[in-house]
């Protein structure tokens, strides 16, 4: 959960698709979708916190608020059988 300039948001949302008993695949359970920080920023206000220059080059953004590390949300439940 990020918290900056008063607003808080989560960078990932979930929903559960309907699963009928006639659907052949095992239910995937939750579906995930990314909601990155820029969706919550509006016009960037002045004075946001910055990464040090070298670090910014590695992260892909100068602005701490806009940094959003992406991890495969399905990683933990890779199916070993099937």
């Amino acid at each position: 959960m990020y918290k900056q300039h008063g607003e808080s948001f989560t960078p990932m949302k979930t929903y559960q698709p309907f699963h009928s008993r006639f659907d052949p695949c095992r239910p995937i359970g939750k579906k995930y979708y990314s909601t990155p920080p820029h969706l919550y920023l509006g016009f960037q206000p002045p004075g946001l916190k910055q990464f040090p220059a070298q670090e910014a080059l590695l992260r892909g953004t100068l602005w701490e608020f806009l940094y959003d590390y992406y991890e495969n949300p399905y990683e933990s439940k890779r199916r070993t059988t099937e």
Binding site: P37, H38, L41, R59, G60, T61, L66, Y67, D68, Y70
Partner: peptide, 15 residues
């Protein structure tokens, strides 16, 4: 991941 982050920043600038 670096390239994805750039997409986020570009989208912000276009907005």
């Amino acid at each position: 991941r670096f390239l994805r982050e750039r997409e986020v920043v570009h989208s912000q600038r276009f907005r």
